[in-house]
Each structure stands twice: as C-alpha cells, then as structure tokens.
Nucleic acid binder design. Structure first.
Length: 849
RNA sequence: GGGCGCUUAGCUCAGUUGGCUAGAGCAUCUGCUUUACACGCAGAGGGUCGGGGGUUCGAGCCCCUCAGCGCCCACCA
C-alpha cells in the first residue's frame, strides 16, 4: 500500500505545495479563455488572520475550479505596504527608542521602514502557501514596486492635466496624534451626548446681546462672525451690526446665510472658518478671516494668554469657566450629536485647515455610477450595488495627501518664489529641482494608500503597458470583504474607468466578517482571535478551508465554527479512506482504464456523479460556495462511500471503482486541494497534476439500470428501518415472490441489511414490507408481529395525515386549475403511492389482529 | 438623519426565481469489533421557520406591521 494508514495533513501539505510550485502549475497556462482574480494584498509585514483564510479560500476555489474548466487562469497575489498601518507600528518602535519621526528626513524614514518591513516580509507569503492558494507567485506585486509608483504617478498627472486635481486650503480631518490628515473613510463617527452651551455675545451697535448656541466653546477665539438665517424675523434688523467677541478685544459682525437653521438652538451660530467645514464654506462666501486656534498638535494657539498651550479639551472647560465668571452663559442643554474620532488612536478628529491635494471626485463618481446602472458589474450579494450607487452620489472631494513618509511621494514641486505655482515632476528624491532657471521645492506629502490600491486591477495586470498579463484586465472577479465596498471597490471602479476606460472587474463578490464562535467580533483585546495557522496545524489546511466555507453565505457576518473545521477534517479522512479501499482493491500496479458500467450500482453512481458535477458547476458559477461544497461533500460521503463502495464490495468492477475515485478527487479538488492531490500523486495512475486536469465530463450510463438501483436502495432502506423498529436484535430472513430485482441482488441486499437469509417462497408469511413496492416479507414470528403493531399504527396515522393533505390539495379546484399541470400530476401520483402504502399497512394490521 | 442585514432543530448556520412531508454539521438517543474509515457504520428523536396581518391554488421565501439584535453611511452648530 502506498497510502498510509492515516492521513496526517502536515506530512503532505508542504510537499504537495512545493510540487505545484516547481511544476509551474500556478502560472497562467496561456490556453483557453482568461479568468482572473487579483488578491486583495495582505499587509506585507503582518500575519494572516481568519478573514484572510476565508478570502483566499473563496478565491482559490474559483481559481482552481476555472483552471479545471480549461481556462487560462491568473490568480495574482499581492503584498501591501499598508502605509498608515505600518507607519503606526513603526512609530511605536521609534517611540520605544525614545525617538520620533522629526529626528529623521523623509528618505531616512522611508528606508528605515523599508528595512523594518523587509525583515518580516515573506511571513505572510508562507502563510498563504499554507492555505493552499494557487496564486501566480512570479506575478506578485508589492504596493511600492516601481511599476506601481510609475502608474500611480501617471494617473496623477492625467488627473492633474485634465483639471481634476487641485491644491488648496480646506478643512481636513486631522489626527493630532499621528499628525496627518485623513480621508473621510478613516474617521469613525460616534453618536454621543454633548453639551450645547448658550453664550451671550454683547452688541456694540445696539443695546443688548445675541445668544449663540455651540458645542465647542473653545473655538470661539477663532470666530470671525455670527450668522443668522436671512429670513429669521428675530434677527433681521441686526444683520450687519457689530458684536464684541467675549474674552477678547475683537469685534465681529452679524451676517446672514441660508446655511443657518433658524429652528436649531437660538438660531444664531458662531462662525469659525478654521475649525468647522460648514463654517469654512460660510467663511468663503462672506470672505471671512480664518483664525486657527487649535494647532496641529492639538493645543491652543492664537488665543488669550491664559488659554495658550492648553489641549482643546482643557480649553473648553476653562473657556466655559471664564464665560461663567463674566455671566455670559445663558444656559446649556444636552444634545445628541456625532463626533468624529481617529479610527486608529480613538482620539477626537480635529477639523483643521491644511493645504492639501484634492481630487474632484464627482466626475469619476458619476461615470462609475453610470457603469453600475448599465449593469457592467454584477454583485454578490446583489443588493450591495445599490448601496454603492448611493455612496457614489454622496462623495465629497478626496483628500489625497498624507503627512506620512511611508508611502508613494506626491510628484509635485512648488516654485520657491511663487507659492501658487506648482508643477508635476517625478524627481521626488530631490528636495529642490531647477526647471528653466526656476527653483522648485518638492511636496513632502505622500499619497493616501487607497489612491494607489484603487488602481490595483490595471497595475497588477500591466494593462497600461500592454504587458503579458494585460489579457486579464478587466478581472473576472473581485472578491473581498464587504467592509471594503466603499473605500476600495468604489475607488477601483472610479479610477479603473477613468484610466482604462473599462470597468476593472466584471463581478464583485463580498464576504462577511468571520466572527468568533459566540458571534462577537474577533479582536486582540478580547483575546478571541483564531489563528488560521494554528487551525491548520491541528486540523489541516483542507479542513480549515472546508470548515470556513461551509454554511456561509455572501455578505453575511458569521461565526467561525470549530465543529465545521472538524467536519472538514473528517471529510478529508473519509476521502483518504475511500482511496485506501480503492488502492487495496486494485493493487499497486493498477493502470487506469476507461470503465464499463455493469452492475446496477455502477450506472447509478455514474448518474449521481454526473449530476453532482453539473450541480457544483452551476453553484460555483453563481458564487454559491457553501452549497457547492455541500453538494460535493454529500455525493462523496453518502453516494460514493455509503452506497457505491458498499455495493461494489459485492459487485466488483475495478475500472469503475478507479473512475469513481478519480471523479471524486476532481470534484473535491477546489475545496480540498491538498488531500486530493496527495492521493492523486500517491496512486500515480496519471502523469499529470490533479490541479491542472480537466473537470469531470459526463459519463454515459443506463437510465433504467440507475433507477433500478434506486428501487433496490429503497428496499434496503425500508428493511433497515423496519428491522430497527422491531423488538429485540434478532436477525431476520427476507422472503420474496416473483421479484427478479430481489432475486438478482440477493447477496447485495443481504450484506447491506445484515439479514440472515433471503429466500424465495411460494407461500408468504410474516411482515410485508409496506413501502418498498416489492413482493417482500420479513419472516417474523406472530409474537414479534404483534409487538410491532403500534409501529404500524403510527405509520398508518402518519400516512393518513399525508393523504388527507394531498386530497385536500386536489379537492381545491383553484389548485387543479391554476397550478402547473406537472405539479398536479405529481401530486396525484404521490397520493396514489401513499394510498397504496396505507392499504398495505391496513392489510398488515388486519393480519396481526 | 439615511441605508443595509439578521431572527429557521439544543448550538452554528444553509434554504437560487413562492411548489409538494423545511435541510446540513455538531450535539443527543438506540444498535454495531460489517473485506477503507470510531475522524467510522446502521437507525432514531428534535422545528407552530421572531409575533400579528395581507397577497396567492400554495408563503421560510413576496407585501404591511410590531418586537428584538447587528452593521454601514452622514460636515447641522
């Protein structure tokens, strides 16, 4: 025997993977229709988590399946420099050494982080291999590879040339902790209870005061106006008059702007253009001064001496206290409002004015929206498309600048003598450049990583360079987590269309989050993280894949289930043992031959496997992974192992046995690549690899023979059921009359039912098997029969209930008239069957009584 | 403020366009040293599909409504 007694996944998996890789099986074949998936690049210096295991399981199932369909498959792996994530980790390292980013130049930092990442790189790639991904490693792209930078720069230039890039002072989401601006997607919005203070601003041109409402009193030092709604009768006469800004010696004016909601608060709003996006816009309309009172480090500047240097939080308390001391607080209420937090540090985000690079997003967004409406991309789950359309409609201009050294430098330079004169240039390694006698200073900021990852599909396929892989653009499928719909999918569609004129992929499959066994989000702090590598070590890679795919539907957050991984492990073991049985029967020197079905079961199993092959195909092509896997699992375990193999022990057909095993391995391969290939290679019946062999083709069989086996199967099931119901553990004899199906399969029936004997008789006795439709009796004593009476009565009652159900349905004229004719005919037939059963049961009971 | 999703067996979940007696894995119970497999074999029990209403010949699936849970998006002070 070549196959060992037990299957130990860890003994085989690494070798099998190495063999695939050595034989170049992962590279696109160049033959057949292209099929491509680009892997969402995992963090280059991180470890894979369970979500990655799900991601690559789904992707690899598709890749392997389509490869077996004879397609030219490119599964392109990637590694992400994970700009901000990695930067945060690195900055922590620096802090441990008592240093900060300000001790180094951009180049120094960049190369230090590069080395830091490089030390751990390869880790996650090894882990992907352990998961069995059939990715084309030679085509791996790192997000800071030269070709990425080149493409990103040229996209930036195209956008710039076409007037879609602008640089300007805008309110940005600023992380005072990490000293960088964020895009909208990096801000966590939380609904909170906050205090709304009513503050009196004394009037200078008239007697009295105006009361404004604010949740952020500390920003009042940056006020440059108070705004009211132009139609608000209460304040109409005050527009244009002057106010004293409390705690300062500044004067501000009352202005009118439609932005103000007269019904909120007091209907009068302080306007702080430097610290609120709405106020910023009001300020632009009214040409107001922008006074920055919170610095980029989060402390107060440009404020009266007593508040200088305070954190914004402290300044709020002290400002309120100072106002109270001057009796200017006119009241306070508690309101629910949303506050933006830094998703990384958990600290409040400060809206601050900063000179940044922005992308005018709406032209791109609308084009993307149109492509979606035109159905150029399909979605699983389908409902997510609408969500995306809505998102695109509401997008604001995209802040592309990050003040982080670990990223792609923005290729722009500023005229040292004219701050408004910016030029595009890729010489980002030089701080100053000379162009036609003018000196330009480089931009120090880098791109938001989503700007480069948004171009991933056409970068990885070298589409713009018309490279070797360009036939794989647009990608066939983009598979990723549902949480990336807006931040990544949307950006890929927008930038893909903009740069290439085509959608980046034809189908989007979104999976949900893998939760812990109790349905909680996994997190390091909760300590409920499941490490995929540990699961592989204990149960095997196939088990993890089978377990994580099972019973999981698209877009749904679902719990991880160890029980399902165990079930997967058991399945791999089952396959192994099927193979061991086959090997034992065929011997080591078996040479594969085209089989010829002989026994009824032979025809039946061919029929089952044909159906399963088509079924799995149909389900995979509609992205129903769990159902496809289930179908594969049951045909192999139930049909092949429990019926075919058992029957084959009595009715041997070696060539068919080999064919059945081959077919099982093929059907199972996308779901359990390691154990299937291990068996294929160990038996060595073929010279090729299982992973590159063709998906099972339909095999001819005799329909009548197959259905006869089904009848036999029903009889056997009936015998097993009835004997298990009979009292005691006696072995019974089956008696039959004029039944060639029974007569021809005596040994098979006996073995599969553990009957003592099967005899042909002229005069019958005992218990007739009521549901088998056969002339068959179990030879039981009158006593046993009597004890069995209640069982029969129960069955009769159940049968009567079902009959009543069918009769009611058929008595319903509307049903007979309106339901499809086949359905009605089917109901009639079922009714007849149940009536026959009832009659048989009544007959039996009559005999007993 | 807008949007999405979930509620089905003890547990974790499937259930394509409405179609017959609602499934799986695990768990439970009863048998079983059967020419591969106890990570196994043969059986069994277990569900008023969250509540209510509606459409339909027919609803787990469609519509309305109520309740509970979860997620995402959003620059109203």
């Amino acid at each position: 025997m070549r196959l060992a007694k037990t299957y130990e996944p860890n003994q085989y998996e690494p070798n099998i993977y190495a063999m695939w890789e050595e034989k170049g099986a992962f590279s696109p074949s160049g033959v057949g229709d292209p099929f491509s998936i680009v892997m969402p690049p995992p963090n280059a210096n991180g470890n894979l988590h369970i979500g990655h295991a799900l991601t690559v399981a789904l992707e690899d199932i598709l890749a392997r399946y389509h490869r077996m369909q004879g397609k030219d498959v490119a599964y392109i792996p990637g590694a992400d420099h994970a700009g901000f994530e990695t930067w945060v980790v690195y900055e922590r390292e620096l802090a441990k050494e008592g240093r900060s980013r300000f001790d180094f130049s951009r180049e120094q930092l960049y190369s230090q982080v590069w080395n830091f990442v490089d030390k751990q790189r390869g880790n996650m790639e090894l882990q992907l291999r352990a998961l069995g991904v059939s990715a084309s490693w030679k085509d791996l792209v790192f997000t800071l590879d030269e070709k990425v930078i080149t493409t990103v720069n040229s996209t930036f230039k195209k956008l710039w040339d076409e007037g879609l890039i602008y640089r300007g002072e805008r309110i940005v989401n600023y992380s005072t902790k990490y000293q960088t601006s964020y895009s909208d997607i990096e801000v966590d919005h939380k609904v909170e209870k906050g205090t709304l203070w009513m503050i009196a601003y004394p009037m200078l041109d008239k007697i009295g005061e105006i009361v404004i409402a604010t949740t952020r009193p500390e920003t009042m030092f940056g006020d440059s106006a108070v705004a009211v709604n132009p139609n608000d009768e209460r304040y109409k006469d005050l527009i244009g008059t002057r106010l004293q800004l409390p705690l300062t010696d500044r004067e501000i004016t009352i202005i009118a702007d439609d932005y103000v909601d007269a019904s909120f608060g007091t209907g009068a709003v302080k306007i702080t253009p430097a610290h609120d996006p709405n106020d910023f816009e009001v300020g632009q309309r009214h040409n107001l001064e922008r006074i920055q009172v919170i610095d980029f480090d989060g402390t107060m500047i440009n404020v009266p001496q007593q508040f200088k240097g305070l954190t914004a939080e402290d300044a709020r308390k002290r400002t309120v206290a100072a106002l109270e001391a001057q009796e200017l607080i006119r009241g306070k209420t508690t309101i629910e409002h949303t506050v933006g937090y830094d998703y990384k540090s958990g600290l409040p985000i400060q809206p601050l004015i900063k000179d940044q690079w922005f992308l005018k997003i709406q032209p791109l967004a609308q084009r993307a929206k149109q492509a979606l409406l035109d159905g150029e991309i399909s979605f699983t789950p389908a409902s997510r498309k609408q969500v995306l359309v809505q998102y695109l409609d509401n997008l604001h201009d995209w802040n592309l600048s990050r003040q982080i050294p670990w990223g792609i430098p923005i290729p722009a330079f500023q005229n040292v003598n004219n701050p408004d004169d910016w030029i595009f240039d890729e010489r980002v390694d030089e701080k100053l450049i000379d162009v036609n006698g003018t000196t330009y200073r480089r931009e120090e900021d880098t791109f938001d990583t989503w700007f480069s990852s948004g171009q991933w599909p056409f970068i990885t396929t070298d589409f713009m360079q018309n490279g070797d892989l360009s036939r794989f653009y647009p990608n066939s499928v983009m598979e990723t987590g549902g949480d990336l719909l807006d931040r990544w999918i949307a950006r890929m569609i927008m930038l893909g269309l903009y740069v290439t004129g085509q959608v980046p992929f034809r189908h989007v499959y979104l999976h949900g989050m893998v939760l812990d066994e109790k349905g909680q989000k996994m997190s390091k702090s909760k300590g409920n993280v499941i490490n995929p590598m540990e699961t592989i070590a204990s149960h095997g890679s196939d088990a993890l894949r089978l377990g994580i795919v099972a019973s999981r539907s698209a877009g749904q957050n679902q719990a991880f289930s160890v029980a399902k991984v165990v079930a997967g492990r058991n399945f791999a073991n089952k396959l192994w043992n099927i193979a061991r049985f086959v090997e034992d029967k065929l011997g080591d020197s078996y040479r594969f031959r085209t089989p010829e079905p002989k026994a009824l079961v032979d025809h039946w199993i061919i029929s089952e496997l044909n159906t399963a092959g088509a079924d799995i195909q149909q389900r995979l092509e509609s992205y129903r992974f769990a159902e496809a896997s289930d179908s594969m699992y049951h045909v192999i375990w139930d049909s092949v192992a429990d019926w075919f193999i058992e029957a084959n022990k009595q009715q041997e057909n070696p060539d068919l046995l080999a064919w059945v095993l081959d077919t099982c391995l093929k059907l199972a391969h996308p779901f359990a690549p390691f154990v299937t290939e291990t068996i294929w290679q160990t038996l060595a019946w073929h010279n090729d690899l299982l992973m590159t062999t063709h998906w099972p083709r339909e095999f001819a069989f005799n329909d009548i023979a197959a259905s006869e086996f089904n009848q036999l199967k029903n009889l056997i099931t009936e015998i097993r059921f009835v004997t298990s119901e009979l009292p005691g553990n006696d072995k019974y004899t089956l008696l039959y009359q004029n039944d060639s199906l029974v007569a021809d399969n005596v040994i098979l029936i006996q073995k599969l039912t553990k009957l003592q004997a099967i005899q042909h008789v002229d005069r019958t006795r005992g218990l007739r098997l009521p549901n088998s439709g056969r002339e068959a009796w179990l030879d039981v004593s009158a006593e046993t029969l009597y004890e069995h009476q209640t069982n029969l009565e129960t069955r009769l009652a159940e049968t009567h209930a079902i009959i009543a159900n069918f009769e009611a349905r058929l008595a319903n004229k509307s049903y007979v008239d309106k339901a499809p004719a086949e359905l009605v005919a089917e109901t009639k037939q079922q009714l007849a069957e149940k009536q026959a059963l009832a009659q048989a049961l009544v007959g039996e009971l009559a005999v007993i009584r």
